[in-house]
């Protein structure tokens, strides 16, 4: 228990003294995850809508694969991205390994299936409501997808937040491809892993509390910005 209290008090101390390292690590965590989230959403949300409106031959297979990939082990993704980006790999010439960009790539791969699956689930319901009307109005596939994405935006927000949650707390992949290099690729989760390994539980816990607080703060800010809980809105 004393570790917990020690961690909590150290967390408060570091937060209120705006510890330079802590601020840097936290901002990098946010930067990497939010960038990954934006890119992943741009891929996954239209994909979810496409799977809802179109009936193509490999649709069922795609959905099954996406659902399976939701549980993709991050460390395996890290390994594959590592091999792709390493000097001898196909994308080695870009020199991306052990950079924040590599971490973003790994996180995008991890959360695209999750966001696409949840988005597809939500939009499928909406599509069964809208189906007859949109067919009757002679809409194009693009218009149908656009309508679903817009009218389903609140449910899609949940999908995106689930993706954010998975990405911000992820350690396996970004440790492998980022390398946890101080002042370069160290983020909250990799720092926690490092401090735990070193036996500095108080610092590790402090970082953990900051991570949790940040995840809650981001969720609250997004909900507040979009006013999800307001009555009579969607």
């Amino acid at each position: 228990m004393s570790d917990l209290w020690g961690g909590l008090s150290q967390a408060f101390y570091m937060l209120f003294s705006l510890d330079a390292d802590l601020v840097e690590i936290t901002l990098r965590s946010l930067q990497v995850t939010l960038t990954a989230l934006v890119i992943a959403s741009l891929i996954a949300l239209p994909l979810g809508a496409l799977l809802a409106v179109r009936r193509f031959r490999i649709r069922r297979l795609t959905i099954a694969v996406l659902n399976a990939l939701m549980g993709l082990p991050p460390v395996v993704v890290g390994l594959i991205v590592y091999i792709m980006l390493s000097r001898s790999g196909p994308f080695g010439v870009f020199g991306l390994l052990f950079t924040p960009t590599a971490m973003i790539i790994a996180q995008v791969i991890i959360i695209v299936p999750l966001i696409a699956s949840i988005a597809h689930q939500a939009l499928r319901e909406l599509w069964s409501d809208y189906h007859d009307l949109l067919i009757s109005m002679n809409t194009t596939h693009a218009q149908r997808m656009k309508t679903l994405l817009w009218d389903g935006r609140r449910a899609l927000l949940t999908a995106a937040l689930a993706g954010f949650g998975r990405a911000i707390g992820e350690v396996g992949a970004i440790m492998v491809v980022g390398g946890n290099i101080d002042h370069h690729t160290r983020v909250l989760t990799t720092a926690i892993a490092l401090e735990t390994g070193k036996g500095d539980f108080a610092l590790a816990l402090a970082l953990g509390f900051v991570l949790i607080a940040m995840a809650i703060a981001v969720n609250l800010v997004i909900h507040w910005l979009t006013q999800t809980e307001k009555e009579g809105r969607w």
């Binding site: 809208y130 007859d132 009307l133 009757s136 002679n138 389903g152 969607w234």
Partner: peptide, 15 residues
């Protein structure tokens, strides 16, 4: 197709 419209028995309301 462009010049016709349909009103369903249970109207579909866009959200």
């Amino acid at each position: 197709r462009r010049r016709q419209a349909f009103v369903f028995q249970t109207p579909v309301m866009l959200r």
